[in-house]
Design a protein around this nucleic acid. Structure first.
Length: 727
DNA sequence: AGCACGCCGACT
DNA sequence: GTCGGCGTGCTC
């Protein structure tokens, strides 16, 4: 008797599967990864088969049979991967498995099915009727003629439109056996950018060709391993990926290409599509549910063998993977910030190792961890042969009473741009440039009612907004505490910087790109506006430094480059370095060359100084020394356990209880820090515990044991999430 | 998580 | 007497 071990798809931490079900003989094609609808107590729920066994520990009379098997499910390999994610990040099997199932599975009303069109097909009898003068109505004749002209088969909708016939006409013809009506699957195809001529492979430079050969050699070896493709901005890493993906396809293997969330522009997609055609499927948040489901199925069935997408595309259902590429591997969007808090780069490493695929991590600004542990391939030149632009560091300290956020050199360069044309990008490091509002009389600061942060002042539309939860309220005209009418604004926001930039540059239009304008107009529409302008300045936050390539940018400016450094985060240094280096790489990609200005209060900080010299190797080796000295990853590991609740006392009590139970079972050499309060977010009070130790495995095991014990005590209204080596 | 069961107080 | 509060246990 076949027994299916089924993990129920509920969000509950307390529900511990798997549960055994008896598989009836009649249920065919069922195996590990199949999604079943099963009776569960008085309810019916969905579950995933995680194992097929030939016996159960339970007496047969207690076993129930599944009600139904869903058509689309995951592969056994992906079930293992999903369960691994659940364990590794101390989540639940259901949440790990949800990542590898068809999109929408288990969500209320989210279950997708293929879209179909009714098609009519001319039968032999229909052809005879048409030519041998059978009795036919005018509309019936028109339909049959239309069908014959279309080669014998056509969508019913088109026939009806062309002949003026109704659905009823077709149904009558079908009843007489003159046509056959069938449902034909229709693919809901994601939109692609305007299609130009499919450009074939470009000629690779010697360095690109050598890198591609190394990737292919790895793919062909019995133990492919991992490679870091460290190429300066503009060195043509994408061409190396494309060559490697083509090699994988030639070998009958599949590939996954991960890109940062914001990097998945239609242009980037189009490049893969025009080169690899229908072999490419895309999975990203901009698709409709139907499109996502159809793309998933194309991968599952093998109709597409390459998946391009953000973080979650690491779970693409591709059998026979030969290659995984992580483009811009330093990008923070590879980390999921909700439970399970997985890191797609670590999942990629796991999947590549388990499936015998090669892993390529590409970037101009490698993370210290990757640099430390991965064989390097290097592209030192830009693909067009142009030099990297010179970077000038502007010291913003002690500027003789001038408090303009723009350095005089910045103003001069913008003015020069205004006179001679061309484009500039100005990156406003958001963290240093938010405007908060306080009372001049009593010092009252306007803050979010649901989060413990100050509200940020916006001018158009005028409002105070919370950047964490989206709360918005009108600008105050008097203090809610003391009634004073003196309300002070502190700091200069992106709006203010954009005004100052427009002033300095004179003529050219200023295009603002931040989360606010992107939400209103759309990120791509704004970039397009900038792209199409003759001369313009793009002013905005982090997103101006990502995922695009404008050849006519001659000036890049970073405002307050070190703001990132002033935050207590062990990744602050690498983030500041990447930010400046990535933005610097946007300038001077055209014949006119370019320059970069970096405004900072910390010109000597290693992250700034190395970025100014385009010296990634120097930065990373120094940063690794610092990490070693301070015992940070990759030389030690951090596991963060976060407890949240609407009720502060519950969060505090559970955090204290969890700390107690952890203290009793900590591996030797492990530190436990906390519980520490974290600022309230979206109305939820938070407490955090931090485990620090030399080895990752015992830390994760201890955290999981602690979480399981807490669940055993009943968490009620407290939720727990575990973050491994995050920040 | 749901849902049933059961054991207690405060209403018609 | 019984309606309903939520603490406890169970789901193959």
């Amino acid at each position: 008797m076949a027994i299916a071990k089924v993990e129920p798809l509920t969000t509950a931490r307390a529900l511990r599967g798997p549960f055994d079900y008896r598989l009836p003989e009649a249920m065919e094609g069922v195996g590990v990864g199949t999604v079943l609808r099963v009776p569960f107590g008085p309810r019916r729920i969905l579950g995933v088969i995680v194992e097929i066994a030939d016996r159960s520990d339970l007496p047969p009379e207690r076993l129930a049979e599944p009600l139904e098997a869903l058509e689309a499910g995951a592969t056994p390999e992906l079930v293992r991967l999903g369960l691994w994610v659940a364990r590794e990040y101390c989540s639940t099997p259901a949440r790990g498995l949800a990542l590898v199932l068809p999109p929408g599975t288990g969500r209320a009303g989210g279950r997708q099915r293929p879209a179909t069109d009714r098609h009519a097909e001319l039968t032999a009898a229909g052809r005879d009727a048409l030519h041998q003068g059978a009795r036919l109505g005018a509309k019936q004749r028109a339909v049959l003629e239309g069908l014959e002209a279309a080669g014998g088969s056509a969508p019913a909708r088109a026939l009806e439109a062309a002949s003026g016939a109704s659905t009823e006409t077709l149904r009558r013809l079908a009843a007489r056996g003159l046509v056959e009506l069938r449902l034909v699957e229709r693919r809901r195809r994601p939109e692609s950018a305007a299609v130009g001529a499919a450009h074939g492979p470009v000629t690779l430079s010697p360095a690109q060709a050598a890198a591609a050969r190394a990737v292919v050699a790895a793919m062909d070896s019995s133990k492919p391993g991992e490679l870091l493709l460290h190429g300066v901005t503009g060195s043509g890493k994408t061409e190396v990926y494309l060559a490697a993906v083509e090699a994988a396809l030639e070998r009958g293997l599949g590939a996954i290409v991960l890109v940062p969330e914001i990097g998945l522009t239609p242009q980037a997609l189009h490049r893969f599509r025009s080169r690899l055609g229908e072999d490419v499927a895309v999975l990203h948040s901009g698709l409709t549910d139907g499109q996502r489901f159809d793309e998933w199925r194309r991968l599952r069935s093998g109709a597409a063998r390459v998946c391009v997408g953000p973080r979650s595309a690491i779970f693409a259902p591709i059998a026979g993977l030969g290659l995984i590429v992580v483009d811009e591997e330093h990008d923070a969007s590879y980390k999921q910030e909700s439970d399970p808090r997985y890191d797609a780069r670590d999942v990629a490493r796991r999947r590549a190792a388990a499936g015998g695929a090669a892993l390529v991590l590409g970037t101009a600004t490698p993370r210290p961890e990757t640099w430390h542990s991965t064989t390097r391939l290097t592209l030192t030149e830009r693909a067009d042969g142009r030099p990297l632009p010179p970077v000038e560091v502007l010291d913003m300290r002690a500027r003789g009473g001038s408090f303009s956020p723009l350095h005089p050199r910045t103003r001069d360069e913008l003015a020069a741009l205004g006179r001679s044309g061309g484009k500039a990008i100005v990156l406003v490091n958001r963290r240093g440039f938010q405007v908060h509002v306080s009372c001049r009389e009593c010092g009252h600061v306007w803050s979010c009612p649901r989060c413990d942060v100050s509200l940020v002042s916006h001018r158009s539309p005028a409002a105070l907004r919370c950047h964490h939860c989206g709360h918005a309220e009108g600008l105050p005209d008097r203090c809610s505490e003391c009634g004073s009418v003196g309300v002070a604004h502190h700091g200069a926001g992106t709006e203010r910087i954009a005004e100052l930039v427009a002033e300095a540059a004179g003529g050219p239009p200023v295009v603002r790109l931040d989360s606010e304008t992107a939400g209103r107009e759309g990120h791509l529409a704004i970039l397009r506006r900038f792209h199409e302008a003759e001369s313009a300045v793009l002013v905005g936050t982090q997103m101006v430094a990502k995922g695009h390539d404008f050849p006519d940018v001659v000036l890049a400016v970073v405002i307050d480059a070190d703001a990132t450094l002033r935050f207590p985060d062990f990744r602050a240094e690498e983030r500041a370095f990447a930010l400046v280096a990535q933005l610097a790489g946007r300038s001077g990609r055209g014949p006119g060359g370019g320059s970069v200005l970096v405004q900072t209060l910390a010109p000597e900080a290693p992250a700034i100084a190395h970025a100014a010299r385009h010296d990634a190797a120097g930065f990373v080796s120094g940063e690794l020394e610092r990490r070693r000295a301070l015992r940070y990853p990759p030389f030690a590991h951090l596991v963060r356990v976060e407890l949240t609740s609407q009720r502060e006392d519950r969060a505090a009590a559970e955090a204290a209880a969890l700390a107690d139970s952890l203290r009793g079972s900590l591996p030797a050499g492990t530190e436990l820090l906390g519980p520490a309060p974290r600022f309230r977010l979206r109305g939820r009070h938070r407490r955090q515990l931090l485990l620090k130790g030399a080895e990752r495995r015992p830390l994760v095991d201890a955290a999981r044991a602690g979480v399981d014990a807490a669940v055993g005590r009943r968490l009620r209204d407290v939720t727990i999430a575990v973050d491994v080596d995050g920040s």
